[in-house]
Design a protein around this nucleic acid. Sequence first.
DNA 1: CGCTTCCCTGACAACGCTGTCACAAGGACG
DNA 2: CGTCCTTGTGACAGCGTTGTCAGGGAAGCG
Lengths: 334, 334
Amino acid sequence: MADVAAEAHVSVKTVSRVVNREPGVRRDTEQRVRGVIDRIGFMRHDGARILRQGRTQTIALVVEDLANPFYSQIGAAVEREARIRQHQLITASAEGSPTRERVVLEGLINRRVDGLVVVPAGERPATDPTVSASGTPIVYVDRPVRGEPCDTVISDNPGGVRSAVEHLVANGHRRIAFLGDDAEFWTARQRREAFVAIHDALGLPGDTRIAMGPHTVESLAPRLDAWSRERTPITAVITGNNRVTLNALHAMRQVGIEMGLVGYDDFELADLIEPAVTVVHQDPTSIGQKAVLQLFARLLGDESPAQTVVMPTRLIVRESGRLPASLRARKALP
Amino acid sequence: MADVAAEAHVSVKTVSRVVNREPGVRRDTEQRVRGVIDRIGFMRHDGARILRQGRTQTIALVVEDLANPFYSQIGAAVEREARIRQHQLITASAEGSPTRERVVLEGLINRRVDGLVVVPAGERPATDPTVSASGTPIVYVDRPVRGEPCDTVISDNPGGVRSAVEHLVANGHRRIAFLGDDAEFWTARQRREAFVAIHDALGLPGDTRIAMGPHTVESLAPRLDAWSRERTPITAVITGNNRVTLNALHAMRQVGIEMGLVGYDDFELADLIEPAVTVVHQDPTSIGQKAVLQLFARLLGDESPAQTVVMPTRLIVRESGRLPASLRARKALP
DNA sequence: CGCTTCCCTGACAACGCTGTCACAAGGACG
DNA sequence: CGTCCTTGTGACAGCGTTGTCAGGGAAGCG
């Protein structure tokens, strides 16, 4: 900038004014400065600008694994919303480890990102000293943190599970199993609890099977096989997230069982599998969008109490919720 | 930092030394400073550090669409490799628009990212003045740019297409169509050309069908239907990328045609569709990894001439490459 | 003509940190 | 006792911007 100033016979301040399109520069001066800028290829150093102004125009997204379509869709939405608001997005993976998450968050706060969208790993309480002391606004996504209330965007897990169970029941299923992901995950637990609650509410048999992950195809196959051979066999399963759904589908294919299925999370080609998979769809794009909206409200000074937004889910009915023909004969209890 | 210094009765420089674990601080001084830091919750301001040191410890990834699994897997790999090397990753979408790409790149260079991994939009020549003038090292991924040679990581498109065609031919197919993505994309064109070349090399009929996209299910369904009804019908298609594969699968399902298929890009559940889809797999994780490797070599001062790395593809044989039973009767030309 | 007002421009400090250099104190050594 | 070296510490400048304030000239006004 000093070089430009010297070359154009003006002060650095005037160059700054031109670069930032500030008013109060005579037209010919501006032309001259602009000419020099183009000629020597000057580019403003945003680092210095940031240091001076205190705002980094950057937000960060911390997720478990960017390659998981659920998170990458959130990522795409967050990036788009950030870009619209002239902010850059830093993405970071915590790989599900609270320790790594701390390190990552600390690094981001050292960089003075303006705000954070975080899918919290584990059960970290909201009052992480490093984070809360920094005053950086955070919006949690997909699962809440413990302790004092924080801005959070989650999806309606009980509602999603209820729609799945009701759909299966309406199709004649009575004994429904639940394959949840590792109980370490809050979403997994919440969905399990909802599963139990809705069973009670509908007066369904209480001895249905519940198995929490991690699930591999190898462990799932014999388990599903066994469940379907019991004296009071299950006729359908609800899977707790996209990973589990995939593995369960592989397992079923492998063992050759026919069984009702409602998956959690929609996935590409769910409609091309035979039978097409009925799923509970939570819209990652809307979730990400909503989170950014909330974050920017805070950045613009919104001081209202922390808010938890529950995003609705939608049951996408395809075919896998039906009672398979092979099971219709020995139709279950009333 | 000044506050800490005052509180601990040392100079800011000593605080700086402690924070950065520089040697040459007496043990008790360090303890005292560390105590104050913890007490008042000091966190180093990396923006200032960066301004002083000139390195941002940040690289950026510019892709078309983060929600596309191919790119999000590259993104995950790049982030991981960057993290290992103590760098943060900024991701940005250009949404396929060269104009937007320019703006995005300019913004990233203003931030003085240390390096860039870019999936170039369109046919931008390598000599983008803003970028090349800045001297920021760039590695292009998935498709090359025109003009002077640049570091580039692409996958072996001719090899991939060849393996697809050879596989289909080995399964008895003779009339094979190619459904490429928009010819605006370099990869789409390269795959088309490879398709033509291998046909010549193998002496296959020259009148096979080629259609470049954008392809929707609606446009694809009648086209595939028509092709399969002609006097010399095609018996198989090769699809030019994951999007096209998906739409083609939907279209086939919709019209109810049986036809051989080899898709470009692997996708989750390709093995659960009936018949399981044979694909040409390009490994986005390795591609991303390789690109970062190359980038950091440049950052560490590697001055060797620009290099184009071609990553091998792998044909994942499942079932969709077979000659459907319904077509086996009127078995095609020798 | 003197005064105010407006427009344009520049000097300067400061954002928070670190590299350089200098300096003081203490011990080793001749 | 003087010299040299080592160790720990601090003063200061400067990274590239921008906010603040001040100043100079032209125009407007009485």
